[in-house]
Structures are given as structure tokens and as C-alpha cells.
Nucleic acid binder design. Structure first.
Lengths: 350, 350
DNA sequence: GGGAACTGTGTGAGCGGTCACATCTTGTGG
DNA sequence: CCACAAGATGTGACCGCTCACACAGTTCCC
């Protein structure tokens, strides 16, 4: 068999032979160069089509020393809605920009797992990394690790230099609080997310500030770990605090809290108003349907890629921009009832 | 600058020069060949470390014409728990096997979107494809598309030749039914998944057969689309059918059904027992906590990679194996109350 | 003690593209 | 009508690695 054996996959040279041109001409067609006669181009394209030619990425990568690969690091444990949506948006935007996504899913966001994931990506030759690493520790580890290539850390706050990008969590918490205050609530409790997550910190900060700004009062606080289970336990800690409304740092915890409230015979929203955060698809069917803060994860993913590619391709500095979330009002919040204005220690009041 | 300029990334030749050996010896170390003197290997390894050498994947791919890349096609719209868990398990197993994952997330599972996603992966040079394409139509399209490389289709049933792999949905439905029957339920309704999803079809089939085998009766059926919203509507269709228990083809629909039942003043599980399918993390905190069928998505992902790699590396035929799911009993199911044995048309009976 | 059968290491070629440059056409103006 | 620029195409080298093979140095056994 000669070198142009049709056995293996066709190469640029097979196409050239078939079209009666040199391999370089084929390469020009491949790269959309301008200086090619239309007729020649057509012949080459036809030859490619006939041969079922597909350019070899490895060869191009080797020759250009560009991989057009973006690495993504994300844990999707528990099937959280946020990371998953973000990844999907990232892939979309990356593909549109001519890049492919290489995914790693470390079991957790410990420094060791992260470092192993990043090392894996670097070995694969990615040109940039997007980490969905919403824990402060993880974000710290990432900013240290992603030395050789540009990186964007999602859901990281301002403390991580110029490589963080996130939804405006403080604003989101503010929207929730203002909504409750407008309904007449003055005694509000909070169910925080884990203290080492940037988003949780920002939401708590936004919550506390907004409550004070509105002249209301934080009458109770409990810490959760994002799970519905921790929401259930959080409710139990809040019992007796006298709140008429609770702000939960995410929807899952709000679900657990609704469950606990129901177990205790409390009627949401008559006895207690509840606000969540995220607007997961199921939130509209919690009992009662949950008032919550919707995050635009798609937009976050798109911006992450836009920022990273600007850096990779044009060496522009990463721009920071916070994405504003929206308040979605459903049935879990209600104007405070006249009889509840002065809460007594009834079992129907938190 | 000479060819061994330390400017760019170090190559195998830079390492060789530093270690005082030929580039081939370095290559041998890289590939864990046996015939190398221990001292030589150590010197090479040290040189690599000093230079911060990282092998160039593109060059290796080109030389070996192997990419060690696995393409994954999956839609993660709506943040469903299943696909996400599967992807994570796939990545884990692939990395352990020395492969990297290239992810595409088509917006939907239409033939056009699938084909574009697969084409993208093929251009990237993947050696195999795993598609999380649980719709029959999508599975059909995939088995047609994935011509040039081996493929595994997840959550596809036996009708897709030897490339499908899934949890044993029929068995799962059977577990749910037997549980209800043991509790005394004889009049059972079903909330089906969308008719063009292989899993939905298998669950329905398993449900119907098990009900008949147990001498019980299917007194009502409604079709949903996996969403909580469709579960809510499904309940309304089932009203009046006289069932004492409902089997829902997934947890989200069960959630919607619980919501609708609650809106109508029906108490689950006193008035109505409900079983779901999937065991999403939140299911333990639905109101009431949901009895459901747990799928082992991790195992499914691992088996998918195992099957695919066996095919890619040793050209073994893909083996089919159904993974058995487990019944998780929670509070949404209860033995049938004596007064409900002969259901009257009370508003408390479906 | 001299090949056979190792072990350890080096050399040339080539994977399939791209780049820089050379060469051949073609068009244009004086 | 020819010089010269611009456009279209071809040639050689090279990206970083692996393969097949060549070759040197040991061990070994009759």
C-alpha cells in the first residue's frame, strides 16, 4: 500500500491528490484563507466530502501549539441545579466559539482533589480553566493552582482577585428581604448556607444589611449545609425565635424547612412566610409553591466563557461583573396577618 | 536560540539533553517500558521534574493515532439528578482508566442537535461516545450516527441492539407495586413518564405486569412529562378513579402530585399512598417524605465506561447488563385503612 | 571463547497538519 | 510589450512524540 492508502482515515494529502492540488492548498481551504480561486476551493471541498475527510485535531494542535480546549472543573454531587446549568451554558458558548470542553468532576472541592483535576486538565493541554468552585477554600486553592493557564472561578467573590465571577448574591438577598418587609414582616429569621461558601457568605451579608436598612430585625439564625435535611434541622433551631418570616439561602433548605414546619403543624404561608434562593425547577411545586430568587445560570456560564476567551485569545484582563438575580413571588409568602403583628408565644408562631 | 531553547515548554529532547540520554530513552521512561536501567530512569525522572516537563498530548496522539478521549453527549436541562450523577461517575471511571472526557450538552435530544454534537465529538477525535439519550427517538438517532466509533447509549432498552445499557426499570416498577400490594392496596393508579422515553416505557410495562401478577387492578393512568408541573396536572386527571395508591414514574412528578393532593385536601399517606422513582436527594424531605425506587447512577456510569473501554481497547462486544434498583420506604406509603377497603366516592378518596 | 540470547540505548522515519518561503500565474500601467 | 506587483499554488522543514530497527554491552552455555 502506498502512503495514500485509503485504508486508514484520509489525510490532507489524500484530499490533495484527489483534487489535483497540493496539500498546502487543502490546508488553505481548511483555514479559510482568502487567496484561493473559487474553482479550486470547490474542487477541494468536493474531494473532502467524497473522501469523508475529517481534519486531525492532534496534528493541528501539534503544528499550531493551540488546543482550543477549555477545561471545566465542577462537582456535581447531589445533582444541584446550579452547577449543572452552568456547565451546560459553558459548553454551549464554548462550542459556539470553536472550543471543546474537557470536563473533570472531582469528588469534592478539597485542595487535593482540585489539584489532581487541574493537573489532569493541564496534561490534556487545555488553554484555560473554568472552575465551579464556590467554596472559599476551593477558590483559594484554584487561584494558586491555575498558574500556567488563565482561569475563571465561578461563584467566587471579589476577594479572589480578578478571576472570580458570580451572581450578585447580596442583591438577591436584598430582594428577598425587601419583599418580606413590603408584606409587613419585621421579625425575620435566616437559614444560612455553609460558612465556607462564597455564595452563602454573600447572601448572609446581603440579608443582614438589608434587614437593618429596612428597619426590621433579625430574630433568629441557623446554619445549614444546602441540603433539605439541614433545612429541616434548621427549622427546629429557629423554633421560638418569634419570626414571622424566614429567608433560606437556597431552595433545598427551604424545602426541608417547609417540611419541618408542616410536621410541627405550622401553616406556610399563613403562620410563616418563607423565601428561598435559586428557583430550582421544582420550587413551583413545593408545598406551598416557593417564593424565591432566580439566578440566571445560563448568563453566568456565557459570561465565564466570554471572559476566559477574551483572555486566552486577546490577552485581555478578566472583567468582573455581577449578574443581577430576580425575585419570583409564589405562595410561600403572604402579608403578615393582623393578629400576628404582636406575636405571642403561640405554637403557631415561630 | 538553539532548538533546545528553554523559552517554550520543555520537550522530550530538552529532558534528554539534561539527563544525558537520547530522546528515545526519555520516551521509554514516559511509557513505563521495562528495559531501562534504574539509574537511567531516575536521572530522566529528575530531569523531567527539574524542567517541569509535561508531555505534549497532541504529539502523542498524532504519533500513536490514539486520543484516549471519550465523548459524552447529555442534556442536563432542568438539572435532573440522573444524567448529572451519571456524568460524574463516567468522568471518574474514565480518568481512572487513563481517558479524558469531552462533554457536549445539546439543548435537546432532537436528531439535528444530536448529530451536531456527535459530529463535534468526532472532529475532536474521540475514540468512543457515551450518550445519555433516554428517548427512543434519540437512541435511534444515536445508533445511526455513531458509526465511526463505538458508542454506548444509556438508559436505552434492548431494542437498540447491543449498545444500550440501563437500570432495570421494570424490576423497579415491580418493587414499587409489590410494596403497595403488601400494604393492602388493590386499586392502584399510575402517573406515566413521557411515552417516547425508554425508561418511562419500561416502568409502565413493569408496573402493569406487576399489578396484574399481584391480582390488583390498574384503576387509573395519566401521562406526565417528568416535571412536577405535569405531576400536578396528572393528579387532577386521576381524581375520581378510586385508587388508594399512585405509582409515579419519577420523583419530580410525585412531588407535583403530592402538591395537587394537598391542594385538594387529601392527606398523603392517610388518604393516598404515593411511590416515586429515582430517589433524588430532596425526596426524603418532600411532604410527606417519599417512598421511592433508588437507582444506582454511579454504577450505571461505571458500567458504561467499562463496556466502552472493553470495546475500544480490546474490541470486545458490548455486554448488556441491567442494574437492579432498590426500594426506599419512607412516609408517603401506609397500609390501607380498614375504612378504605371499599372506597366510596368521598372527596377523600381518589 | 565465540556465537546466541538477552538487556540497554541510539538513529531515522513518519504521524497530519502548519509555517515560511519559493515559484508560477495573472493583471496592470507606462 | 515588458517590468513589476499581486494573486494563486507548490516545496521543505518542523511541531513533539512513537515506532521499527540498529547497535553496543552483558550474561550464558556448550
Amino acid at each position: 500500500m502506498s502512503k495514500s492508502s485509503p485504508a486508514g482515515k484520509p489525510s490532507i494529502r489524500d484530499v490533495a491528490a484527489r483534487a489535483g492540488v497540493s496539500y498546502q492548498t487543502v490546508s488553505r481551504v481548511l483555514n479559510d484563507r482568502t487567496n484561493i480561486r473559487a474553482g479550486t476551493r470547490d474542487r477541494v471541498l468536493e474531494a473532502m466530502h467524497e473522501l469523508g475527510y475529517r481534519p486531525n485535531r492532534a496534528a493541528r494542535m501539534l503544528a499550531t501549539s493551540r488546543s482550543r480546549l477549555i477545561g471545566v472543573v465542577a462537582t456535581v454531587n447531589g445533582g444541584y441545579y446550579g452547577p449543572t446549568s452552568i456547565i451546560s451554558a459553558i459548553e454551549d458558548a464554548a462550542r459556539a466559539g470553536g472550543y471543546a470542553i474537557m470536563l473533570t468532576t472531582p469528588r469534592n472541592l478539597s485542595a487535593a482533589e482540585l489539584s489532581s483535576a487541574v493537573e489532569h486538565l493541564l496534561r490534556e493541554g487545555v488553554e484555560g480553566i473554568i472552575a465551579v468552585a464556590p467554596q472559599t477554600r476551593a477558590a483559594d486553592a484554584m487561584s494558586a493552582l491555575a498558574d500556567p493557564v488563565p482561569a475563571v472561578i465561578l461563584q467566587a467573590d471579589g476577594s479572589h482577585g480578578d478571576i472570580g465571577l458570580s451572581v450578585d448574591n447580596e442583591l438577591g438577598a436584598g430582594l428577598a428581604v425587601r419583599h418580606l418587609v413590603e408584606l409587613g414582616h419585621r421579625r425575620i429569621a435566616v437559614l444560612n448556607g455553609p460558612g465556607d461558601w462564597t455564595e452563602a457568605i454573600a447572601r448572609t451579608r446581603g440579608f443582614v444589611r438589608s434587614v437593618h436598612d429596612a428597619g426590621a430585625e433579625v430574630v433568629g439564625a441557623a446554619d445549614g449545609d444546602w441540603t433539605a435535611e439541614s433545612g429541616y434541622r434548621g427549622f427546629q433551631q429557629l423554633v421560638g425565635c418569634g419570626a414571622t418570616a424566614v429567608f433560606c439561602a437556597n431552595d433545598q433548605m427551604a424545602l426541608g424547612l417547609l417540611h419541618a414546619a408542616s410536621d410541627r403543624g405550622l401553616r406556610t404561608p399563613v403562620d410563616l412566610s418563607v423565601v428561598g434562593f435559586d428557583d430550582v425547577p421544582e420550587a413551583a411545586h413545593y408545598i406551598p409553591p416557593l417564593t424565591t430568587i432566580r439566578q440566571d445560570f445560563d448568563e453566568l456560564g456565557r459570561r465565564a466563557i466570554a471572559a476566559l476567551l477574551a483572555r486566552v485569545e486577546r490577552d485581555e484582563p478578566l472583567f468582573r461583573s455581577a449578574i443581577p438575580p430576580r425575585l419570583i413571588v409564589r405562595a410561600s409568602t403572604l402579608p403578615i396577618a393582623p393578629t400576628r403583628q404582636a406575636p405571642r408565644t403561640s405554637r403557631l408562631v415561630l
